[in-house]
Amino acid sequence: MPQPGPEILSAAIVVSFIILMLSIVVIFVMVNYKKKQQIHLHEKALMKEEFEKQFLKSQFEVQEQTFQQIGKELHDNVGQLLSTSRMLIGLTERELQNPPDTLLTANATLGQAINEIRSLAKSLDKEWLERFSFSENIQTMIERINAAKDIVVEYIQSVELPLRSDEQIILFRIVQEAIQNAVKHAGPTNMRIAVEANENIYLITVSDNGRGFDVGSVSKSMGLANMEHRVQLLQGTIHFNSIAEGGTTVAIRLPLKTEEP
């Protein structure tokens, strides 16, 4: 039986080598894919765990702020309203022969006090966090700022945010931090908060006409770092645009369609 020639042996060796290399490449690709898949699953699990931790932290922060606000409102607002009502009723008792205008005023004041108490009681409801509304709480915060008459805050919302209550709490904390930073550090006279839809994103902006700052020269404070971290939990991005003596705009971009964390 004739032996195969050198050309055939060489061709067989080359083919075997090619098959071996292809097998190694396939194995390497499969192992690498499996490794990346495991890393992705691990990162997703860590993200979910961090989201839950951050949500709980935001819950405690909102609850703590609510309790502080209740104490302030009871002392400064509701207490004054009730005192005014008592004074007006006393005046009416001493002037019953006059038209009861003060009685009507006292009645209206008591009605306002009752509404305040109901609002505070609502915030203590055990289901409050489950029904948390970003829009309602931002509007309440703005009303309190405007009531001081030092800053005029405008709120514009042209689209509803399809976020779960826990996501709305996190977004509220981000915007609240931006507002508080402006009020505390920038000294603005006007602010604008807007919620809009732009192409494939939701755009939430907080703008002010305050002193502004050099974004490049300012290191990431704990507040700014927390804002960035919370935006990442919502799968979004945050950008700070500021000009010295020219105001600041904080732009938060969230995906149009959110996914389950």
Rank of each mutant, 00 (worst) to 15 (best):
P99V: 00
G247A: 00
A147V: 05
A225N: 12
A197F: 10
K34W: 00
N77L: 11
Q235H: 13
A225H: 11
I193P: 04
K126E: 09
L254D: 00
S207E: 13
N200A: 09
D150T: 08
I201P: 04
H185E: 05
L81T: 01
M87R: 11
E49Y: 10
R118F: 10
N115M: 09
N146C: 04
E127C: 01
E50H: 02
G111K: 12
T205L: 05
I13Y: 15
I89H: 06
L256D: 06
T248Q: 03
I204W: 07
H42L: 14
I13P: 00
L161H: 09
I151Y: 05
W128M: 08
S165A: 15
V218H: 04
I39C: 01
K48A: 12
M1P: 12
I201C: 08
Q112L: 11
Q139M: 05
E7A: 13
Q68E: 07
F28E: 05
N137A: 02
G79N: 03
Q139K: 13
Q139E: 11
F55E: 02
E177H: 09
E167N: 03
L124F: 14
S217F: 09
S133Y: 11
L110M: 10
S85M: 06
M222L: 08
N200P: 02
D76M: 09
I39K: 06
D214E: 09
N77H: 14
H40Q: 14
I179T: 01
L74N: 04
L41R: 13
T237N: 03
R94H: 10
T109V: 15
R131P: 01
F17T: 13
I170F: 05
N209P: 06
E160I: 05
T248R: 02
N32A: 11
V31Y: 00
T92M: 06
K220F: 02
S217N: 14
Q37K: 15
P255W: 07
K220N: 06
E167F: 10
H229Y: 07
Y155M: 02
L110C: 01
N107K: 14
V215L: 01
Q157W: 07
L224I: 15
V14A: 13
V175N: 00
G216H: 12
L91P: 02
E259V: 11
V62P: 03
P162R: 10
E143T: 03
P100C: 04
V195D: 03
L46M: 12
A194Q: 13
A147S: 11
L161F: 09
E245L: 07
L88N: 01
N241D: 12
Y202T: 05
D125K: 11
T237S: 09
G79W: 03
R94W: 00
P6Y: 14
Y155A: 04
I39S: 00
